[in-house]
Design a binder for these strands. Structure first.
Lengths: 169, 169
DNA sequence: CGCTTCTTTCAGAAATGTGTGAAGTTAAGG
DNA sequence: CCTTAACTTCACACATTTCTGAAAGAAGCG
């Protein structure tokens, strides 16, 4: 159960295979959580890369997929603010970076989600009225989402504090 | 913008149609959030039902799908603790109930999720080692998940308190 | 300004998911 | 017990999603 890398010489293939295993396992869990497969694989690969960034060609080769697939995945990831795209100076290559504050941003996206849900619940409450069991039940749900939205802010603040505290070295 | 039900007589069809619109809209948002379509529709329908419970036949008719589809959806929902199944006394019918503490339970499920992720991240950290950028980056993610898990507990406590406070009548 | 390299777009093939009908299983009620 | 109502399981058809290959579109470099 102790197959961590023993030394970092001559075992380039083993290393690559080990990285791939981690990437695929992590990607699978992201998929379980609702992310599309290719974006999940790309994100996991970037997270596991030394610099936290890879080019389209590198992703294409490592994941064994066409450049077209990488293109689509990256477009999505950029849209939801999980990666940024940067031009490599003096080249047509583009590098895709994972952001240091990835999860923070992902959580904030979730926040927008919550607002949509609240709108729907609000309409449900108005439709049924608070004098019906359904109306009250849906209103409970609405309250819960409002509560969650409010809490997310302070939660991220506590995370920032926690991280600063444990940062130094 | 004020098309709530005006009175509760003679407009059974309009009412049914309005309920259906709400159910489908809510279900669509659950799907967006990653839930499969049929479980989402069933859950939304139960939430919108007067008693918070419906039989298989009622669901089948209201959602215009086969009993088989309902069966599969309910199996999933029961597995993730979003509904419970009860036998109607003196009948072969079964009623499916939404639990009053649905979201609470859903969150707790999410908790189990987080633990799986932590295991994967832990393996990643061991694989790369904290002396590599990747290792440190993955470790950050691990820390974030640990933080989230810890926070979820107190968050649900605050929710319980908040709800008790606004309960009375 | 044209050549070359890299990325994107798009139509279609392959894989995956989703719901149905029919047969099977369980248990109430005569 | 046998009948019958209700739910479940399973194989298959249909729909959707996902990835590819080919061609077009940008942008560096001579």
């Amino acid at each position: 159960m102790d197959d961590r890398r023993t030394d970092n010489r001559t075992d380039g293939d083993d290393e690559a295979a080990a990285v791939s295993r981690f990437v695929e396992r992590f990607a699978a869990q992201l998929v379980q959580a609702g992310m599309a497969r290719m974006p999940a694989r790309v994100f996991a690969a970037l997270l596991s890369s030394e610099q936290g960034s890879l080019t389209s060609a590198e992703l294409s080769e490592q994941l064994k997929v066409s450049p077209a697939a990488v293109s689509g995945a990256v477009r999505y990831l950029a849209q939801v603010n999980l990666v940024t795209r940067e031009r490599e100076p003096g080249s047509r290559r583009e590098r895709y970076h994972v952001r240091g504050d990835q999860w923070h941003n992902a959580l904030l996206e979730r926040d927008a989600f919550l607002r949509n849900w609240q709108t729907t619940m609000q309409e449900g409450v108005e439709q049924f009225g608070l004098d019906t069991p359904q109306g009250r039940r849906i209103n409970d749900t609405l309250e819960f989402f409002r509560f969650l939205e409010k809490e997310l802010g302070s939660l991220m603040q506590r995370w920032a504090a926690h991280r600063a505290e444990h940062l130094d070295g």
